[in-house]
Design a protein around this nucleic acid. Structure first.
Lengths: 187, 187
DNA sequence: ACGGTGATAGAACGATCGTTCTACACTGTC
DNA sequence: GACAGTGTAGAACGATCGTTCTATCACCGT
């Protein structure tokens, strides 16, 4: 519960996301968190555990950002709101791509990191499906539609990162709007 | 022109893509390529140059895979063929996500690597736009549509990687088909 | 006053890794 | 036959980095 551990996790989250995993070592973390080296190793057994903790921290913040201001909308608006929230989140964070994809790509041999990335994506996809159900789609239709919305969300983040495409999220949103209208809950 | 340099580049491409950048060092490369350490440093000034060469190699192979068997189709089929080619390429390569995105994420401070990733994405996007023009869309419409197709292609690769989603490319393709039909060249 | 706990600074180790260097062998060419 | 270019093997260096260890300090409950 100590605030020191929190400081480390927040520094790790920010530095890893902004500068990548390779360029941020333990020394950078303890510097940024204003924490002694021994303190870090009291709370975490290894650097890998710090990475996993940073992923968990970002997972919570990300999901909260996406579900934080739900305008209690129904229908397509409930899902399209995801894209607006994603646009706000992405511009606030700097558009450096998906943190979890980057972590999984960086440490393909680390089971803990891969598991954290997979868990994040699964709950992300489940969130989309749940919003579709809340929007009025029946469970079967929602299960078929959610992966497609997910592809659009992931593609928007990837395109924004690699191309610096500022309009990617908006483009993805409009595609989502059209496929939601085509396979709407009332049809 | 020596075949040794080619061996190094091919080994780098394969190993980097399959095992990531962090886990593959110079020693692994010279082992796999069956080349002496001095030979590598005769052809490349640094490890970073090897990475860039591997990216260039994969860029060529990827574009050739996407344009290799163009059934001289017109209309939407000319673009949708991209998804089929991507599915074949992705399953052949192991579905480890986008090589260029991973490289850019791994080395955010390396200007050469970032430039190679950006150049790849730009010609990739330009390829989509060119196919749309060949399919019958006028230049203005193609320029508006290409980024959306691009988002779908990127999203499919990302989803296939992080979720292990085997159907992602097919899903993306069907979305592309619907938006191409909605904004078709004849409409 | 006491022990226990979390924190600090800094040295130290051990391993990895990118890079350079030395010495030698093979191959063509002028 | 000298020469330049490419290749090999392996040692060596220099730096970084993750991790551990020691010694010291501050707080806190009873």
């Amino acid at each position: 519960m100590g605030t020191k551990r929190q400081d480390i996790v927040e520094s790790a989250d920010r530095l890893f996301y902004r500068e990548g995993f390779a360029d941020v070592g333990i020394d950078r973390l303890v510097d940024d968190a204003d924490v002694a080296l021994g303190t870090l190793y009291r709370h975490f057994r290894s650097r890998s555990e710090v990475v996993v903790a940073a992923m968990a921290h970002r997972h919570d913040a990300f999901l909260q950002a996406l579900t934080g201001t739900p305008p209690a909308a129904t229908g397509a608006a409930a899902v399209l709101h995801l894209f607006d929230a994603l646009a706000a989140w992405s511009s606030a964070e700097g558009g450096n791509g998906c943190f979890f994809l980057r972590a999984a790509a960086d440490y393909p041999a680390d089971a803990g990191i891969r598991a954290a990335a997979l868990a994040h994506k699964r709950t992300y996809l489940a969130l989309v499906e749940r919003l579709l159900c809340q929007g009025g789609w029946d469970r079967e239709r929602a299960a078929g539609l959610a992966p497609r919305i997910f592809i659009l969300l992931e593609g928007a983040v990837a395109a924004a990162f690699t191309l610096g495409d500022h309009a990617a999220v908006a483009d993805a949103r409009s595609i989502a709007a059209s496929i939601l209208a085509a396979g709407g809950p009332t049809s």
